[in-house]
Design a protein around this nucleic acid. Structure first.
Length: 267
DNA sequence: AAGCCAGTCAACCGCAGGGGT
DNA sequence: GACCCCTGCGGTTGACTGGCT
């Protein structure tokens, strides 16, 4: 037995909303706002709709402060990055994007980004074996939540995101290696490229890959590994707690998609 | 012109969790 | 603590559309 339906299905209209219904809901919300409950709103607004349907229609479509479609490369980058950290926490991801709904982000991921990611992974796997994993796995797939959370992700930024944007220490950032007594590991995790003598993370990544003549790079220090694998327009960078021999990824900590050129897209 | 197919996205469904009683 | 109500969320469905044969 399932839960009782929230409303009488025979008495309410379902399916696509008509312009008249949109007008009625929009007019009601503009006059009164949602001061009461969504359950009682349909009656007050003269709608033969379920309250949940009204809520969804307003939040995902009629609300004036949202925009649809046309995701920018910058937004795509943020979505890739946050998905690698959070998994399918669409409301959290949407909260990092201006005027986007969770439903829109979810649809965008399922219809476009996921396919681009799969295509990039397939293209990569035909060339060589990745050092650890070619794609950041969703957080939900890991037994432990990423200790890198909460993220400090800028929501308004004109230029491409850099390595530092996503891993800069924040007040809430925990040092995953502090308990292990390692003083250098967290520093290495925060800037594994610093040792390369480069002033910028992207330049260091470029240099590292160029020096290796390779499409991937990795490094290990006392307690952490990082690895980067390329695709057409950037790199997937993963961070893992090192295993006993420092060569194996023991625990996935986080990762992000790092676009070397924001004007390029995957695939 | 008709049928098929894939892509897109609005909408639905059911569950989880918070708050009130 | 148990129960109920309501909201929020994520997974899924299905209508619609455009391209292709």
């Amino acid at each position: 037995m399932g839960r009782a339906p929230c409303c009488d299905r025979a008495a309410v209209k379902r399916g696509p909303w008509s312009p008249e219904e949109d007008d009625a809901l929009r007019d009601y919300m503009q006059r009164h706002g949602n001061t009461g409950s969504w359950i009682t709103l349909p009656n007050k607004a003269g709608l033969k709709r379920c309250g949940k349907s009204c809520r969804l229609r307003w939040l995902n479509y009629l609300r004036p402060d949202i925009r649809h479609g046309g995701f920018t490369d910058e937004e795509d980058t943020i979505i890739y990055s946050l998905y690698s950290q959070l998994g399918s926490k669409w409301s959290l991801i949407a909260s990092q994007l201006e005027r986007r709904t969770d439903n829109d982000v979810k649809n965008h991921w399922n219809t476009k980004l996921k396919k681009r990611l799969a295509a990039a992974a397939a293209a990569f796997s035909t060339r060589r074996s990745p050092p650890f994993m070619p794609l950041p796995a969703p957080a939900a797939a890991h037994a432990q939540p990423s200790p890198l959370l909460p993220l400090s992700v800028p929501t308004v930024k004109a230029e491409a995101y850099t390595y530092d944007d996503f891993l800069a220490p924040t007040a809430g950032l925990q040092d995953p290696f502090a308990a292990e007594g390692s003083s250098s590991a967290s520093a290495a995790l925060q800037d594994p490229f610093a040792a390369e003598g480069s002033s910028s993370a992207s330049a260091a990544l470029h240099d590292t890959l160029a020096a290796e003549g390779s499409t991937s790079a990795s490094a290990a220090s006392s307690g952490s590994n990082w690895s980067a694998v390329d695709n057409a327009g950037g790199f997937f960078v993963d961070f893992c707690a090192a295993g006993p021999d420092l060569a194996a990824a023991d625990q996935f900590l986080g990762g992000f998609y790092y676009p070397l050129d924001p004007t390029l897209s995957l695939v």
